[in-house]
Amino acid sequence: MARMIVHCAAYQDGRRIGASEDLTDALTTARRAGPGAFVWMGLFEPTTEELDRVGKEFALHPLAVEDAVSAHQRPKVEAYQGSLFVALKTLGHHPETHAVTSGEVMVFLGPDFVMTVRHGTDSPLSGLRARLEQEPELLRYGPSSVLHSVCDTVVDGYVEVAAALQVDLDELEADVFAPGRVHRDAAGRIYGCKRQVMTVRRAASPLLEPMLRLERGAPFVRPETAPYLRDVADHLARVNDQVDGMDRLLSDILGANLAQVSVQQNNDMRKISAWAALAAVPTMIAGVYGMNFDVMPELHEPWGYPAALSLMAVVCMVLHRVFKRHDWL
């Protein structure tokens, strides 16, 4: 079991009172310490058997354990007898590929324990325990303070990813609408950016209702943490507004780019038609005089050949000026 345990420690009044890789030892330490003591355990991608053993120690509901093992859960809050289950999605942005990847964090909350279960490498929780141990005035609220810190850290990750996507979007917009350039391949880039925005939306949008539910009050969540959870919900609402704005802007950019391409194609077709008309005039005249008839006007005149060439040149010049004046060339 130690392989999956990232860290396990007991706390009381905001101070660490013991640490152990053995869950039973940590629980014993916390329960001997008296009221207010709790165990904080962090797990990384446990197997079904491993999480079942932990679930028996904490008396976790089998359905919650199953959700924590299988992952791929929609952000949610579910109350069970003896525990509260919270599922969140984590996000990471990779500047070198402009890709947004996701992971998951599940939080089990009880009267004297809190347990986090992480899936995926994009986890913002590294260093969270150390930071929270530096704030004993917050940690003294027990498992509720850990739940708030996890939610706050995850949502802060959304804020960072949204900011990075905004930079990518600004660069894409400037490139697509650069003067004198029409990007026929921009639709693929816009669609790729839209997919990254959708990844953020799938993580952030469904989480707002659970966060509001936690802020209004939930089992094992102390009322003292409500202002902190309300602040997290406010940040999450701003992220959702930002994501909605980026999605609308991407749709507008895509529509504008398709219009640009369509206009450019029309311009290309007009130019092709104009050049075809210029080529058609001498072809027509040459075709008429190339017919094998003996009796034709000016056919036997010495000036007939230069007259035909001059006619071709004059007509082509007139057509060229007309097309140029109407911006067809």
Rank of each mutant, 00 (worst) to 15 (best):
N267T: 13
V114I: 07
S149H: 02
S149M: 09
G42T: 04
T48P: 06
H235R: 14
V100K: 00
L63S: 12
I17S: 10
E209Q: 13
V77T: 13
L139R: 01
E173T: 14
A286P: 08
A64Q: 10
T225Q: 07
L27N: 00
K89R: 14
H61Q: 13
R16T: 11
F177Q: 04
T90E: 09
A203P: 02
F220V: 03
T29I: 13
L91W: 10
V105E: 05
V161D: 07
A313H: 03
G82W: 14
V105P: 00
G110S: 08
R32Y: 08
I5Y: 01
T116Y: 03
A99T: 15
P179I: 06
S102T: 15
L236F: 10
V155G: 07
S20A: 15
G36L: 04
V69R: 03
A99P: 02
A33E: 09
S262F: 06
A308V: 07
V155S: 09
V176S: 07
K89E: 09
G290S: 02
Q264P: 02
W328P: 07
N292C: 11
Q12S: 14
M296H: 08
E135T: 14
V315H: 05
F177K: 06
E171K: 05
V167I: 14
L254T: 00
P227F: 03
R248F: 09
S251T: 15
D170A: 13
L23N: 04
T90K: 03
G217C: 06
S205N: 13
E298N: 08
F323A: 13
A279W: 01
P223F: 00
Q265G: 04
T153Y: 12
T153F: 12
V161S: 08
A313I: 13
V6P: 02
R53Y: 13
L125C: 03
P46Y: 00
E171P: 00
Q260E: 12
V154P: 07
E66F: 07
A68N: 10
G217S: 05
R53S: 12
T283Y: 09
R202T: 11
L299R: 12
E78V: 13
Y305V: 07
E171C: 04
D112Y: 01
T47H: 09
L229T: 07
Q12D: 08
G36R: 01
R31C: 08
Y158K: 10
H326A: 15
C193M: 13
P75R: 05
V150N: 07
P223W: 05
D294A: 14
A274P: 11
L147T: 12
D244A: 14
G120V: 00
A276M: 04
T153E: 15
R321W: 15
V146R: 08
G217M: 07
G304K: 01
A79Q: 12
A218R: 07
A10F: 03
G103E: 01
F113Y: 09
M269Y: 01
D268T: 15
I272D: 03
L172R: 00
S102I: 09
A237G: 13
Q134P: 01
D252P: 02
A286K: 02
F177P: 03
G180L: 03
F108S: 02
F177M: 04
S126C: 06
